[in-house]
Design a protein around this nucleic acid. Structure first.
Lengths: 156, 156
DNA sequence: ATTACTGCAAAGCATTTGCAAATGC
DNA sequence: GCATTTGCAAATGCTTTGCAGTAAT
């Protein structure tokens, strides 16, 4: 499947989700959906808000937040918290489950996949009779790139 | 070691931490520190603020937040985010490393320990040359207690 | 004496919400 | 035509901060 075919398939799924709940298909929702799916990085809601403000098909702040929440409910996006006040979003359509490392120096998100983590968690859940449906894991540290650079002293 | 001996040892460590940085030992810091160490649950900053407001040794909101940040830096408390806007705090002195499950129904935090998780993360870090120093893992789902209760319908 | 800390209230910031007007069904 | 959505701006809720006064070294 080409990139645009994937996008189209995702869009159809989103429409089906909306219809299944009796929610409406609107221009604003289509616009936000398309912009989110087009991104392949981690972004913050206000970045998307700014994008939408510049866009021909303007969508307001409130609606961007509302649509993002809708997409999260529908399973098209995930949110990651890096310990700060704001969320980071990423779309997950066509992506396998993964977790993140966040670099304390450059702030970059590094994705990684490791099935052993999920398996270990499942074992703990079984032992505690906890029915898990989601996890959020963030590993903090210094990324490979920044380790090569000498650390700047914070207090000279 | 008895409970009070542990507390005393922790307090000495905190004093040492402050002195090592040339920070001052104050009544407010001692008060916040003692209250945090006395708790054995997960609490929010504003709960501590409220406690301090009622206390004989009053400490203001700003100072509570500032001291909590100090204690986190010193490694006496950890913060956990449950996906909401506010942090949850817990002291970690004398506790082994653990992660959390959060129940979507009752909001309870369940602690669990599983060495395999850390080992798996370490392997991924080595592979990516990421130098990790901390992780934050939260598993969402329904706890054992709530699973026994029938779910209330949200839309009747 | 100096310098750091505290209290207070005001500011910040990401996110949410109330309401009238616009839009999809 | 009628209910849902939208845009807007104001509100929210937690957290941080500036500043003048207070306390630790």
């Amino acid at each position: 499947m080409s990139e645009s075919e994937v996008l189209e398939a995702a869009h159809q799924e989103f429409l089906a989700f909306l219809r299944s709940r009796g929610d409406r298909v609107t221009r604003a929702r289509a616009e936000v959906f398309a912009r989110v799916m087009k991104r392949h990085d981690h972004f913050r809601a206000d970045e998307l808000v700014a994008e939408c403000a510049r866009s021909r098909e303007r969508v307001s702040r409130g609606t961007v937040y509302r649509t993002l929440a809708l997409m999260e409910e529908a399973g098209f996006v995930h949110t990651v918290r890096d310990g700060e006040a704001h969320r980071h979003y990423e779309h997950v359509y066509g992506h396998t489950r993964h977790d993140h490392m966040v670099c304390r120096r450059c702030g970059r998100f590094v994705e990684f996949e490791n099935a052993a983590i999920g398996e270990a968690i499942e074992r703990s859940c079984r032992a505690l009779q906890f029915e898990a449906d989601e996890r959020r894991l963030v590993v903090f540290g210094v990324c490979a790139g920044c380790r090569k650079t000498r650390r700047r002293e914070s207090r000279p």
